[in-house]
Amino acid sequence: AEDTGVRVELAEEDDGNKSSIALRLWVEDQKKLKGKYKDSGAIEFTFDLDTEVPETVAQEMVDSGFFLETDVKIVGKSIRDRVSLIKWRRQRSASASNGK
């Protein structure tokens, strides 16, 4: 995935079944963002792979004061990239199981 300066990782091991997963997000390289986030920490939240949209969570982070509106797209993209990877991994392991 593209290096957005915002790191998103699983906050728990993915069991491959639950649609709701815990993610952790933090600013890894603030130079890639327009706002200054020197003192921000890691933000942990749950995300539903089936029903939720990454950009909505990014907007809620803006609303909550974690990010500036100007960076909402890059935060949304960072979440979207990680969510896509998680879904891809799940599909791959599902097709591997079916192939047996």
Binding site: R7, E28, S40, G41, E44, E60, S64
Partner: peptide, 27 residues
């Protein structure tokens, strides 16, 4: 550890905690 809970009006819960030093990239 010092974690802070922030609840968005839509109901989502954000738990904020310090990023471990080991996870921060060299600037």
């Amino acid at each position: 550890s010092s974690a802070t809970l922030v609840v968005h009006s839509a109901g989502r819960r954000f738990i904020v905690s310090p990023v471990p030093e080991s996870r921060l990239r060299e600037q």
